[in-house]
Amino acid sequence: MVAISVDAPEVTRQHCQKLGFTYTFLSDPNAEVIRRYDLLHQGGGPKGADIARPAEFLIDSTGTIRWINLTDSVTVRARPEQVLKAFDDLKPAAPSGA
């Protein structure tokens, strides 16, 4: 699980410490990657800052995108069970009960 936002590493570090997040948080202060993924929300942030729209991509080990969630509302995000199911669907039909 990897998070990406336009915030500086310092801001992100404080945010992670505050909330106890241990996974990788990446900083894209100039929104280069966000632009490359066409996820820029111009003027969507505080004081009209350009930020990323909410989006989730699940990428398998070959680098292929296997699941995408592009919400149409800021208040609606992927739920944990959706994400877990997407991860489960990644696995080639593993024998159950293993």
Partner: peptide, 24 residues
């Protein structure tokens, strides 16, 4: 992608979930 479990302990599968946040 080479080490998906580096991001989080106990990854369920060989995959990376990229989450784009609006910011904090």
């Amino acid at each position: 992608l080479a080490s998906p479990s580096a991001g989080t302990a106990g990854a369920r599968a060989n995959g990376v979930l990229l989450i784009f946040y609006r910011g904090y």
